[in-house]
Design a binder for these strands. Structure first.
Lengths: 340, 340
DNA sequence: AGCCCTATTTCAAACGTTTGAAATAATGGC
DNA sequence: GCCATTATTTCAAACGTTTGAAATAGGGCT
């Protein structure tokens, strides 16, 4: 059943009574090879299911045609969707994609990076963990000439790097403006992990929208949380603790966090929890099942972010862009209003 | 900035004025190498950030240490969660994982399989697309001695293969029994794509639970749908169209489908939609945000399914199990009751 | 000094492919 | 039939590593 002698060029050559190089060139359609010879070789190759050995080719060509992707979590639909863009474009260009999750832990991220280095990826796409401030584990790639594109999460401690980011400033600005236009004056902002700075832009979008439309800002309308439910509840309690600054609308940095917030307000039977209009980042498919859905979502176009990241990476790999000519690509968000 | 001469064994050897083989053996801790030599080599390797070239090793060792995973969709949390188990166990055993999505299309699945073949994976884990009946595109792997483990979706047209499946029979039996124990006599069953046979076991679980507890079966209580919302609504309409067989409970083959069903019943203001007790496969994290959550979920333990798949695959790769000694592993489901 | 034994290092081939240079075969002109 | 082209094939080295066999070095003994 199992064919034990591997079908190599040598094997084909012996069968066809010709040299290895003729076989190789015939399969690669060299113009110096006789048409009839090509045909014979290709037929035999097909018949014997010849598959070129990638390791040998990679060794010869000094590349692996593998792109590494390190991201925090595949359970977050943003990342899962972003993979679509990466995978598709990579496959169409003859590259394979290898994914590793850091689970938002620095230790695991370092491990993943080392694994990718050993795997000799041709390029790396990274969404850093929320604890990543030191980039030592990525420096080695640059030294070896392996380009890295940071995406989604802005590595602001790393000034000299290529990045592809969602324009969360614009997204948050638009969302806030949308709520202002609907007459809201007390718009609360529920931000992401305070220490990580890839959420700062969102806050700036919020602030700027308020300023541009002359809506007074109050620090009492701003709170921070992370992906922990308890912290979200603490944050939301604080937001709704000041009678003179009672929010009528809410902007949150991530939808699941928004859901937690709304659920909590509902559970404590907050006087007008069902009048609060909210918007979060994500545009999660589950919104349609919610009883009190957000009025709109900030669609971050993850597929497009992923696609831009791989596009840039391939340009760097192919040296169409110089590695030291640091690029920054912004992908706009889109406000999606939910018709209820 | 960029170090252009790659750090190879040869490079290290020249620097240290010794032969390539000494360097290689020193790094691999051969007992015949002098302790002091080892130390010098290892120091130099560390200093120069030597990383062995995987392609060369793979070529030599005739393997890639890459495991391929082909699955329909990463947006389905079942598959995303199953990846956890695969990735973790694979990484711990020195293997990399390469993921490809078929989007439930046969054409894309064939493409993925060919990509994996060219990539010379050491083994393959596959959840077949719903259209896969012919396994020609996978046969070549077996011929080349590359083991395949089919998981989650039972490839019943392919008799001789290794499989790791969730015990959906047991899961569905348990769910149905749970509802019977709560006094329900009209339990509707909403099944998955009728043509695909990886959902038959669920139905059998349902039927057997009814039979074992002497609850009469009625064909009017059974309907089929797929992942399309329209079809789900049609199905649910049929289920609730017979006044003499009005369901009081519902078992669905997938939770999102259940959500669609409940949402529809609610939207048409079905007289007692909020009394219907429902259970679906999945245990989706979003359930906690639902207004009318299912009373319980059938937890399929995807991580465990994934882990069992990779475990079996590695045993096959290491020839601890003969490739022709076809294995079948069942992973039990667990009924998770939601406290509201 | 000569010999043997052990410790250590080096040699050389192999894995499967690619590719420029060299060799050979085929063709045409005369 | 011979030479000059051109068409086609083959040679040989290279990519970076591993590993059994062979070579060498060092040490102790007589």
């Amino acid at each position: 059943m199992i064919n034990n002698t591997p079908v190599t060029l040598k094997f084909l050559a012996e069968r066809l009574k010709m040299s290895v190089s003729t076989v190789s060139k015939a399969l690669n359609n060299y113009p110096t090879i006789n048409a009839y010879t090509k045909q014979r070789v290709q037929e035999m190759a097909r018949e014997l299911h010849f598959t070129p050995n990638k390791s040998a080719i990679n060794l010869k060509e000094k590349r692996s045609r593998i792109i590494g992707v390190i991201l925090p979590n595949l359970l977050d639909h943003f990342f899962t969707r972003s993979i679509y863009g990466v995978e598709q474009f990579a496959t169409n260009n003859g590259y394979n994609v290898i994914i590793s999750q850091s689970h938002d832990e620095l230790e695991k991220e370092i491990q993943s990076a080392n694994m990718m280095l050993r795997g000799r990826v041709d390029g790396l796409i990274v969404a850093i963990s929320k604890h990543t401030q030191d980039f030592e584990h990525f420096n080695q790639f640059e030294k070896m000439g392996i380009p890295i594109v940071y995406y989604t999460r802005n590595p602001s401690f790393n000034l000299n790097c290529h990045k592809v980011l969602g324009n969360t400033f614009q997204g948050c600005y638009q969302a806030t403006k949308f709520l202002i236009d609907r007459g809201h004056l007390k718009i609360a902002y529920l931000g992401g992990p305070k220490m990580t700075n890839f959420t700062h832009d969102r806050f700036n979008g919020y602030i700027n929208a308020l300023k541009d439309h002359e809506v007074p800002f109050s620090a009492k309308l701003v709170a921070y949380t992370d992906f922990d439910k308890e912290n979200t509840i603490t944050a939301i309690k604080n937001l709704f603790a000041h009678p003179d600054h009672m929010p009528t609308a809410l902007v949150a940095f991530k939808e699941p966090i928004l859901f937690d917030a709304i659920k909590y307000l509902k559970s404590i039977n907050h006087p007008n929890f069902n009048k609060i209009e909210s918007i979060g980042f994500g545009n999660n498919a589950f919104i349609t099942y919610l009883d009190l859905p957000p009025i709109a979502s900030i669609e971050e176009n993850p597929e497009s972010v992923g696609e831009n990241a791989i596009k840039l990476l391939l340009q760097l790999i192919n040296k169409e862009i110089d590695m030291e000519n640091y690029q920054k690509v912004m992908v706009d968000c889109k406000l999606v209003v939910h018709s209820s």
